[in-house]
Design a protein around this nucleic acid. Structure first.
Length: 462
RNA sequence: GCUCCUAUCGUCUAGUGGCCUAGGACAUCAGGUUUUCAUCCUGGAAACCCGGGUUCGAUUCCCGGUGGGAGCGCCA
């Protein structure tokens, strides 16, 4: 039975990189009929915030990444304490009373000597009596794991064999005290207790892996299979950061990127299906997913591609659905109709752009009357507009796009399209770029269209 | 500095020794449809980091170099 987990720490809003780690874990679980676990790693009391945890949960749900089991490390401190005591009792871990200043000095001298900084192991040789005295005196301490100076290797699912020399690492701190475990330790204890079979996480965790393997060995448990995903990069190829744009799922959602589009996009960052298919929803991704096909090198986040994918999803929406989704992004008093929605659809990149595109239907901007002239020349523009207005007058109250198009075109000479359609469009939109005059008529309706044309004629002073 | 990871068009990638005159997508450029914008259609330009091997034959395998990245916390 395959069991994987996503283990975010609630120290910030759900990151786009985390969303991909979550997605790949989720896909791996679903593909193999396994279990996907969400575990909140909130052992750092100073930095963890409920607000962030809420955002992580909400974002994952929105993206469709439902979990089968849920845990919170802050609720498991008794468990860690038990294992900590066990390791100390078995002489696999020990109390360390070195002060931060001691350590700092040690590190500096090592760096100066050109060697890799590493804890000397000074407190490892403390006698039981010394430890007891220190503890009773209330001296601050940490707990360190004895790291054997040996080579460890593991077979990464994505990268193949990776070897490390633990001799370079030194005895790592695994807890601030009996009740405050640190990352490397709590992760391993939980992964053991939760029967995690595959640890799939970001490449930045590769250096943690040998330390964690040492922990598995100290705890006498077999290690899981590890798989390290490539990083999502900023345009400068460094780990994706705020500097180049939004990094949280929350921000993308609030700009009007569809959850399906975000999922689809991050799936393609470092992974590719066997065929050339690019637009895929979660179900299709499960069908196509194969962890052997994930890349080894980092992938640059390209917002242009996300925009394109988002457009694909937006365009596939029917009018009713799109209207519903747009609702939250435009003023509440804007009563849209089907014609407006259909008109802006091909121009819509993000739902957040809807207000700007729809604006023309709810407010006629002030414009210069000369804008009405096709190619800057007044060829009886006012006369033409009057003719068009008369024609529109004869139509029914509600315009059907096709009908109104046919009606108007019946009036327009083949070789004078610009003379007729340009002023019509400008009079309806007050702008030189807008949807087509027919789309405007259909969206605006008879009354408002005639009102706007009248304004145009007045601007022409006739 | 030390350790580890990594390397195909600007970007995401296909490619697992001959099918590669290196394929697709985004972006870009040109043309077409469209009164404008967007959509849409057609076409173009654009890449195997370098050097050694191995092999009849390397983008593909091996080694070295170089470039890029990550990690080196009493953060996760």
């Amino acid at each position: 039975m395959i069991r994987v987990r996503m283990a975010p720490s609630p120290t910030g809003y759900f990151h786009i990189g985390s969303s991909r780690t979550a997605l790949f874990n989720w896909l791996f679980a679903r593909k193999n009929k396994g279990v996907f676990i969400l575990r909140i790693e909130d052992t750092d009391k100073e930095r963890s915030k409920k607000e962030y945890e809420d955002d992580i949960l909400k974002s994952m749900k929105t993206l469709g990444l439902e979990w089968d089991e849920f845990y919170r490390q802050s609720e498991r401190s008794g468990i860690y304490r038990e294992y900590l005591e066990k390791l100390i009792a078995e002489d696999k871990a020990y109390y360390c009373f070195c002060t931060r200043e001691d350590l700092e000095a040690e590190r500096e001298s090592q760096t100066a000597a050109g060697v890799a900084p590493k804890y000397s192991g000074k407190c490892c040789v403390l006698t039981e009596k010394e430890i007891k005295t220190n503890l009773e005196a209330g001296k601050p301490y940490v707990i360190r794991l004895k790291i054997p100076a040996e080579k460890v290797s593991f077979d990464d699912m994505i990268r193949g064999p990776i070897e490390f020399d633990l001799g370079l690492v030194g005895d790592i701190v695994i807890a601030k005290n009996l009740d405050e475990p640190l990352y490397n330790f709590s992760v391993v204890v939980d992964d053991i207790l939760m029967d995690i079979t595959h640890v799939i996480r970001g490449e930045d965790h590769i250096p943690n892996t040998p330390k964690q393997i040492a922990l598995y060995r100290a705890l006498g448990r077999p290690e899981p299979t590890f798989g390290h995903l490539p990083l999502i990069l900023s345009p400068d190829r460094s780990k994706m950061s705020k500097r180049y744009g939004d990094v949280s799922i929350k921000e993308y959602l609030s700009k009007g990127y569809l959850p399906e589009a975000i999922v689809n996009f991050v799936a393609l960052l470092g992974w590719h299906p066997k065929n050339d298919k690019e637009i895929m929803v979660l179900d299709e991704l499960v069908d196509e997913f194969d962890i052997d096909r994930v890349q080894k090198a980092g992938a640059v986040f390209d917002i242009e591609k996300l925009n394109w994918i988002n457009r694909q999803y937006l365009n596939a929406l029917d009018e009713e659905n799109l209207t519903e989704k747009i609702r939250g992004f435009i003023p509440a008093d804007w009563k849209t109709n089907a014609a407006m929605i259909e008109a802006i659809k091909p121009r819509l990149e993000r739902l957040g752009d809807a207000a700007e595109l729809l604006h023309v239907y709810f407010e006629l901007p002030d414009y210069d009357g000369t804008l009405l002239f096709w190619k800057g020349e007044d060829r009886d523009t006012a006369g033409i507009l009057k003719k068009l207005a008369n024609e529109i007058e004869t139509a029914g109250d509600r315009f059907d796009l096709e009908e109104i198009t046919a009606k108007i075109m019946s009036l327009v000479p083949q070789d004078k399209k610009g003379d007729y359609l340009w002023p019509l469009r400008v009079s309806l939109s007050g702008s030189k770029t807008s949807p087509t005059p027919f789309e405007l008529l259909a969206g605006l309706g008879k009354e408002e269209s005639l009102r706007r044309i009248k304004i145009a004629i007045e601007k022409l002073g006739k």
